[in-house]
Design a protein around this nucleic acid. Structure first.
Length: 450
RNA sequence: GCCCCCAUGGUCUAGUGGUCAGGACGCCUCCCUUUCACGGAGGAGAUCGCCGGUUCGAGCCCGGCUGGGGGUACCA
């Protein structure tokens, strides 16, 4: 089995592209490839840069960086499509010579006029000219059909298809032609791509036929949509892989989530490692309907992956993410409370940089009836504590709760705001223990004197 | 306009002719350290897009309609 991922370097790698890359990766690493050849499949990375206007090296680098971050490694490539130009020209000359293609100066205007004469459902058929762009000759009758591995048989009436332009007047080839030639040359066996390519497939099939070659198998994945039901784009916030990374998501979680979007792996589970996903992945199980990208659920899945990481590993990633070091102990007491890497600093940063005061919270909680009195007693008890660990701190704080007949929150919250400056923090006992007696007492004094 | 694809709670999905349509995210209530998150116990939320048909019986099969989406570039 040979599959490919062919991004066009006209922008960053978007979530839809990452999904396509992931599914190809899963296919190549899964049991289907194994059963077919006794070893896993080969993934080819091809850069579709035939659009010279919009393709840039920076985008290529960015896409490769995003794929690497996701852990989606490839076996061959990156192959620059533009580097295959000689071969494309050769194939084009062959079709021209065979009469499968012809030069035509007909532009959109001419095509429109043609349809006015012959009916909107009649595909444009040109007459060979001496120069102009190159069009592929589509049969007048019959259908071009194929069995889509996720949708079943798809069929297109030839009569309604325009003769597609496969090369510009300057001889440079266009997408539908280059792709077919490259898929053929690279021995691609399975083309797995987005639904937006469904109507390109018959054109490419016709190119294979004109070349006298056997086409690969095709599978079209459903579209990924934004919360508004429209195609996912930058307008929906985090649309690129790079942005997801900057927002503190883990690559394993991103992979897990986008795999879930559009495939029902298992009835009751949603947490999967790459290996588990590759084992379970089946093209036939891929959903046919478009899916809405839901960041809330990504957050949830990300939290699961975060907590599944060994503490040292989580610490390493958090240190890389925040650019700080010595985070170990704080990470230990925060790991149950964060869902993304970006959640950590706002939650526990005060342990290192001191409180970031939220005046409203301060006024409300520390300024509450009896709160200062409670804080005073908490201070006395903690100051007198011999062993300053989480268990001892908890004992003292609960003693205050019991002695005064208060609710736990009436004691814990003022203390939390005193040491963190806000109502959000890791567990109060562990946090106080980590801060130590000196700093805790000083922070309480600071709150009391404010 | 034309060609094509799709349609189960707000979202992702399970379900392939016969249990009260199951799970997850989110939401609500309660508990856990009145926040955040995790975990636990409950709850609200779906006339399975609509109309016909096939069948003793349809979310599952067929047809039509409606709605959404993709394509319709000398872009990919």
């Amino acid at each position: 089995m040979r599959v490919r991922f062919p991004p066009s370097p006209t922008g960053a790698l978007h979530i839809g592209g990452a999904r396509t890359a992931l599914y190809n990766w899963l296919l190549a690493h899964g049991p289907a490839a194994q059963a077919e050849a006794g070893r896993r499949g080969t993934l080819v990375l091809r850069i579709e840069d035939t659009d010279r206007e919009r393709s840039t090296e920076a985008n290529v680098a960015q896409i490769i960086d995003a794929l690497s971050w996701l852990g989606l490694d490839w076996d061959e490539g990156p192959i620059s499509q533009i580097a295959n130009t000689p071969r494309h020209r050769m194939a084009l000359a062959q079709l021209l010579a065979d009469g499968h293609a012809y030069h035509s100066t007909a532009d959109a205007e001419v095509v429109r006029a043609y349809k006015e004469r012959h009916g909107a459902d009649r595909g444009f058929r040109g007459t060979p000219e001496a120069d102009g762009a190159v069009r592929l000759r589509v049969p007048d009758e019959g259908v071009t059909s194929f069995v889509d591995l996720v949708r079943g048989e798809l069929s297109f009436p030839n009569a309604s298809m325009d003769d597609p332009i496969i090369a510009r007047a300057d001889g440079s080839v266009l997408y539908n032609f280059a792709v077919a030639v490259d898929d053929l040359d690279e021995g691609i066996t399975h083309v797995v791509r987005g639904e937006d390519h469904i109507s390109n497939t018959p054109k490419q099939l016709l190119v294979f036929k004109a070349l006298g070659a056997e086409p690969p198998l095709y599978a079209h994945l459903p579209m990924l949509l934004g919360p508004d039901g429209k195609k996912l784009s930058k307008r929906h916030g985090a649309a690129s892989v790079q942005e997801l990374r900057e927002r503190g998501y883990l690559p394993e979680a991103v992979n897990n989530y986008i795999a879930l979007l559009g495939t029902g792996f298992a009835p009751d589970e949603e947490f999967f490692t790459m290996d588990e996903m590759a084992q379970r992945f089946r093209l036939e199980r891929v959903s046919r309907s478009p899916a809405v990208f839901d960041e809330q659920k990504l957050r949830h899945i990300n939290g699961m992956h975060l907590r599944a990481l060994p503490p040292e590993e989580l610490t390493r990633r958090l240190e890389a993410f925040t650019g700080r070091s010595g985070l170990g102990a704080a990470v230990e007491i925060s790991r149950e409370k964060i869902q993304t890497l970006a959640d950590f600093w706002p939650l526990a940063g005060f342990i290192f940089d001191g409180p970031r005061d939220d005046p409203a919270a301060f006024a409300k909680v520390v300024g509450a009836e009896g709160a200062r009195d409670v804080l005073g007693e908490v201070r006395r008890r903690l100051a007198a504590l011999e062993r300053f660990d989480a268990a001892a701190v908890e004992r003292e704080l609960r003693a205050v709760v019991d002695a005064r007949g208060l609710k736990p929150g009436q004691v814990f919250q003022p203390l939390r705001v005193a040491i963190a400056g806000r109502t959000v923090s890791p567990g109060i006992f562990e946090t106080v223990a980590l801060l130590g007696r000196e700093r805790t007492v000083a922070l309480i004094d600071r709150a009391l004197s404010s």
